[in-house]
């Protein structure tokens, strides 16, 4: 059986799609057959970040409506042949998604893939609900600022009460925190919430901190998941996250102020 991961946040613009692209690529690179599904019908972006927008012929709505077979809609990634992408439709809205349709697709994908990553749209409406409904694990992407943390808290409440696992009374969805766009310097100057502040409110298992990094934007524009940029700190952070999710023991990084570390090292102030 495949493991279904939902990447969610409630708030928009916190890095859900970047994270979905990075971790699905990371899982595939580790040798696991992975598919990433864009649930953001009407505002699809995942194909851009994965660099496959020109190869989109059929999308998830076509599959749900029976206009295309699942295999016709799946796009094999050009960097890693273990990774497939199921794009969203740009011309429909989220009401075109149906629970039965999504369930059928996930069931069929489960036979072939080890991990199914669902890229949730922002908000808590149909698209976001269906993205998380069938999940086994939830990656909650949060920025270190109050509105993002509040929305994540709300999303966690929904995960705990409105998912299929909750409705069936099964073991609840495993929730993980991914703190993105983190800048220790700005935390120090009081412009940003610290990891501790966020953890105090959410009290979640921290999978990793992704530092604020120029490489995220560069990679997105180039259409390659940032995890492939092994030199960048964001790429390394995502690689750590994938490794931790798969059970490897990696110490947390990118929490401390780097300049502070060197200052400490050289005894300066």
């Amino acid at each position: 059986m495949a493991r279904i991961i939902v990447v969610t946040s409630g708030k928009g613009g916190v890095g859900k799609t970047t994270t979905s692209a990075a971790i699905s690529m990371g899982l595939a690179k580790k040798g696991h057959k992975t598919v990433v599904i864009d649930f953001d019908v009407g505002l699809r972006n995942l194909d851009l970040i994965m660099g496959c927008e020109r190869r989109v012929v059929y999308d998830i709505i076509n599959v749900i409506n029976g206009e295309a077979a699942l295999n016709q809609a799946l796009i094999r990634d050009k960097n890693c042949n273990l990774l497939s992408i199921l794009p969203a439709s740009q011309t429909r809205n989220k009401d075109a998604l149906t629970q039965d349709g999504v369930e059928k697709i996930l069931e069929e994908l489960s036979k072939e893939f080890k991990y199914i990553v669902c890229d949730s749209p922002a908000g808590i409406e149909t698209g976001a609900h269906l993205a998380m409904y069938f999940a086994d694990d939830a990656f909650v992407v949060t920025n270190p600022e109050v509105s993002s943390v509040r929305d994540s808290d709300r999303m966690l409440g929904i995960l705990a009460s409105k998912s299929r696992r909750a409705e069936r009374g099964e073991e609840p969805i495993k929730e993980y925190l991914l703190l993105s766009r983190y800048s220790p310097e700005r935390v120090k100057s009081g412009e940003m919430l610290s990891l501790n502040d966020v953890q105090e409110i959410l009290s979640l298992h921290l999978l990793g901190v992704i530092p604020e990094s120029k490489s995220v934007l560069t990679s997105s524009n180039a259409g390659t998941p940032v995890i492939l940029d092994e030199k960048s700190d964001a790429g390394q952070a995502y690689a750590d996250i994938v490794a931790r999710y798969l059970g490897e023991n990696k110490p947390q990084r990118f929490i401390e102020d780097k300049t502070g570390f060197f200052r400490k090292l050289f005894g300066g102030r």
């Binding site: 929305d151 966690l156 409440g157 009460s161």
Partner: peptide, 8 residues
């Protein structure tokens, strides 16, 4: 025994 989340 579990946290009560925003909106609950």
């Amino acid at each position: 025994t579990k946290p009560i989340r925003s909106g609950q």
